[in-house]
Design a protein around this nucleic acid. Structure first.
Lengths: 179, 179
DNA sequence: ACCTGAACACCGTTCAAGT
DNA sequence: ACCTGAACACCGTTCAAGT
């Protein structure tokens, strides 16, 4: 089968799911597709771009009618792929344009009535929380460390705390749309 | 000069400061110390352990009489070393025991009167914010992306929001010790 | 247009052997 | 006790050459 950006992305996700981030090399992806490593470079500029493509694919299906739902959806999407948070962490750092799912957060906060800067900074704080929380969970799982049985509650606790804290105290209480 | 864990840590920090995380290899550190790469493995189990040692050295001097001061101190310490946040991110994931500086956060929140679980989760949210915020700044700097001129305010905004949000609304207002 | 083959300049880690 | 030398099994990326 002919190579394509889509094929390459899917092969990367297969390797990620089965073997994790440490095994996600250009050479491994090429082998998965029965091609030479150098062949990938016709379709993709470098490994960073490939990681962004993988992150976009992971975050694509994220939905949510309110902030808490959306953050949970992002958490679930990242958790569904081994080392998904590590990939997303690199992608947000490398990508000039915002990633799907995450990009909706500042919009939601603005629609909710927050001043623009509060909405932007608040969204960034939320993204930091999501990525770091999932990264911590996944790394603990990878190391065989005991997984926190209350991880979901701890996650929601953080999201709610940030929402309350960004000047949405009233909001968090009175406005059901936010939760 | 004879090798030691301390010499190795310092050599690692020198490379980090001058050339960044991408150049921080065992072979590079060995070269910096005029030794063979294999020599390092008598003093250190593997690269992960070395990264934890580097993170500990970076975070060692962190101080602060209240939460905001401490978080600022951690931010400054991480910012002072190129890619410091990336190293810390890996170290917190890899290290079984808490890192200096960061470990004081849950204590402070408890002393302040928060229930134990709120203090722990709140501290974790704060740590996530700090590490991800600095990582984002440093990666933007490395990519030549325009550095946010309000990075410090955005950082404080996040810390304050989290503090308010973890049930310390009254605290954040009434209790000067927290800020 | 799309891919192979070969090369360049690297990695982390192990382990026998030296001193 | 502490380190060298050599090896193993890898990396990302480039680029002439093939089809």
């Amino acid at each position: 089968m002919a190579l394509s950006r889509d094929q390459i992305t899917k092969a990367a996700l297969r390797i990620l799911r089965k073997y994790g981030f440490a095994d996600l090399s250009m050479r491994r992806i090429a082998a998965e597709l029965d091609a030479q490593p150098s062949a990938l470079y016709w379709h993709v500029q470098n490994k960073q771009e490939l990681l962004v493509m993988a992150a976009v694919a992971i975050l694509e299906p994220c939905r949510g009618d309110d902030v808490l739902q959306l953050t949970r959806s992002v958490r679930a999407a990242l958790s569904s792929v081994r080392d998904g948070a590590d990939v997303a962490l690199i992608a947000v750092a490398a990508s000039p344009k915002p990633l799907p799912g995450l990009s909706r957060l500042p919009e939601m906060l603005r629609e909710f009535g927050l001043p623009e800067q509060d909405a932007d900074w608040g969204a960034r704080t939320l993204v930091h929380h999501i990525l770091a929380a999932v990264a911590e969970e996944q790394n603990a799982a990878a190391l065989g460390t005991s997984v926190d049985p209350h991880a979901s509650e701890a996650f929601d606790f953080g999201v709610r705390a940030i929402l309350r804290g960004i000047g949405a105290e009233r909001a968090a209480m009175d406005e059901p749309t936010l939760f």
